[in-house]
């Protein structure tokens, strides 16, 4: 009966334009449409499949501002049982390490956790390290970038897929798993699921509830600091020619001119 916590994040939709705020260089959350990160839907799906095979309970955990409730509701309507929303203004501008610390503290409040499942990398920050850091802080084994997850008793096996190829991993529970793009196809919430989600418990906590010191989080206390941020000047369109039967030759000439071949 695995007890599973799924980490989810609300991100700016990658189909919309994303920008940083001018004042403090944090994510401009009002600028872009906010959605549940696509990879998190796969993390929830995997948790639900494990639950369906072995029974158990799925808790969605999200650190984020007020409107992140939309992302939480989506997870619940897919079939997660309950949710924890860490909501605290002091968290604004927290970096990856601080966020991981808050996530780890929140996971500790859930009793008898067997598995923590996350996406391998968020589409906005793309740090690709939150699951690993959460494993570090909890002292759990990490099995990350999974394209296949098997839970068997107290053992979890993962086929990891990255640019290095496939790696087969094995560890004891409790463990942290992160999933990659190819893990599964997430289900769509059914109408029944959407209705049921409205009645599912969402526990809203602040960092004091988690025993995290306000002096350890937020922009002012971040380990890393952004000294400047600017939109990259848009790439200018260069030359464009119609192919008159010599398009390939023309590209070759251009590349020779640029000393690229």
């Amino acid at each position: 009966m695995p007890n599973i916590v799924v980490l989810v994040k609300q991100v700016p939709d990658t189909y919309s334009e994303r920008k940083l705020s001018e004042g403090d260089h944090t994510l401009d959350r009002d600028f872009a449409d906010a959605v549940l990160d696509e990879i998190n839907e796969r993390a929830i799906e995997e948790a639900l499949q494990i639950k369906e095979a072995h029974d158990g309970e799925v808790t969605v955990l999200c650190v984020g501002p007020d409107r992140a409730t939309d992302a939480i509701r989506k997870g619940l309507s897919m079939g997660a049982d309950k949710a924890i929303h860490v909501l605290d203004d002091a968290l604004h501008g927290s970096d990856l390490l601080q966020t991981a610390k808050v996530l780890a503290a929140a996971i500790r409040t859930v009793e008898d956790v067997d598995l923590v499942i996350a996406g391998n990398e968020a589409s906005d920050g793309a740090g690709g390290a939150v699951p690993a850091v959460v494993a570090e802080l909890l002292g759990y084994p990490q099995l990350t970038h999974a394209r296949e997850v098997t839970v068997d008793g107290t053992t979890v096996k993962v086929t990891r897929e990255t640019e290095d190829g496939l790696t087969h991993l094995e560890a004891s529970l409790p463990a942290v798993v992160s999933v990659g793009e190819k893990i599964n196809e997430p289900r769509y919430p059914s109408f029944k699921g959407i209705m049921a989600a409205k009645k599912k418990p969402v526990e809203t906590v602040d960092i004091a509830d988690l025993g995290v010191d306000a002096g350890d989080v937020g922009l002012a206390n971040a380990w890393s600091t952004v000294v400047e941020a600017a939109p990259k000047p848009p790439r200018e369109a260069g030359q464009r020619v119609e192919d008159d039967g010599d398009g390939g030759v023309k590209i070759a000439e251009y590349l020779v001119g640029q000393k690229l071949i």
């Binding site: 906005d124 890393s224 400047e228 941020a229």
Partner: peptide
């Protein structure tokens, strides 16, 4: 953001 922003950062 896939190259849309250039950021300079350092350890605080």
């Amino acid at each position: 953001f896939g190259g849309a922003f250039v950021v300079k950062a350092k350890a605080a």
